[in-house]
Simulated scan of single mutants.
Amino acid sequence: MSNTRVVNGPGFRVCFDDEPDYLRAYVFDGTDSLAVSTAMWRILGEECRAAKSTRLLVLEDLMSTVDLPDIGQVVDTVIESGLRDVRMAFVELRDDIQGSEIAESLCLERGMSIRIFSEESEARRWLIYGS
């Protein structure tokens, strides 16, 4: 049985569920921006450390998107938040696949284990079982 909790961030909310093999984070109720993404990844990093999770499934359901020139800064925040060694599946529930794919490439270049998806079931399968 999972333990569900909601964290209010600045301009968004995150619903966390402790699943048997990973931490699930549903990010919603906000508009994405550099400030929102930075805060989001810091909260995700804190929660992963608290849960001692090595796998993270992120479902992002935010309006708008981070400007493409700011994506590198968001990736820096992901690493600074302690998520470099966490296997992550990121599900883009809206339509910012281009920005998410750029972020995925930057993360992979830095040695992180991350993939971008548009469906939760696919993401979960990769997160638990690999490619």
Rank of each mutant, 00 (worst) to 15 (best):
M1N: 10
S2Q: 06
N3H: 15
N3V: 13
T4W: 07
R5L: 12
R5D: 03
R5M: 11
V7Y: 14
N8E: 15
P10V: 07
P10I: 07
R13Y: 02
R13T: 12
V14T: 15
E19T: 05
E19F: 04
E19Q: 14
P20Q: 05
P20F: 01
P20T: 04
D21Q: 14
Y22P: 00
L23P: 08
L23S: 03
R24D: 08
R24Y: 09
R24S: 08
R24N: 08
A25P: 10
Y26K: 12
Y26P: 00
Y26Q: 04
Y26V: 14
V27Y: 01
F28E: 01
D29Q: 08
T31P: 00
T31C: 12
D32E: 13
S33A: 11
L34C: 01
L34Y: 12
V36L: 10
S37H: 05
S37F: 03
W41H: 13
W41G: 01
R42Q: 15
I43C: 14
L44A: 05
E47W: 02
C48H: 04
R49P: 01
R49L: 14
K52H: 13
T54A: 10
T54H: 05
T54F: 00
T54W: 00
L59Q: 13
L59V: 13
D61V: 00
S64R: 14
V66R: 07
D67G: 04
D67V: 07
D67F: 08
L68Q: 07
L68V: 12
P69A: 04
P69F: 03
D70P: 05
V75D: 08
V75T: 09
D76P: 03
D76Y: 00
D76F: 01
T77R: 09
V78K: 04
V78D: 06
I79Y: 02
I79T: 06
E80R: 07
E80Q: 12
G82A: 07
L83S: 03
L83T: 00
D85E: 14
D85R: 04
V86F: 00
R87P: 06
M88F: 00
M88T: 15
A89Q: 02
A89W: 02
A89Y: 04
A89D: 08
A89N: 05
F90E: 03
F90C: 07
F90P: 00
E92I: 09
L93P: 00
R94L: 05
D96C: 11
D96I: 03
I97L: 15
I97D: 06
I97V: 14
Q98C: 10
S100N: 13
S100H: 13
I102Q: 12
S105Y: 04
L106I: 10
L106T: 06
C107G: 01
E109R: 07
E109F: 04
R110T: 06
S113L: 08
S113K: 15
S113C: 13
I114P: 00
R115W: 05
R115L: 08
R115Q: 14
F117W: 11
S118I: 07
S118E: 09
S118M: 08
S118F: 02
S121A: 13
E122Y: 01
E122L: 10
A123D: 04
R124T: 14
L127I: 09
I128F: 03
I128D: 06
I128R: 11
Y129A: 11
Y129D: 12
G130V: 07
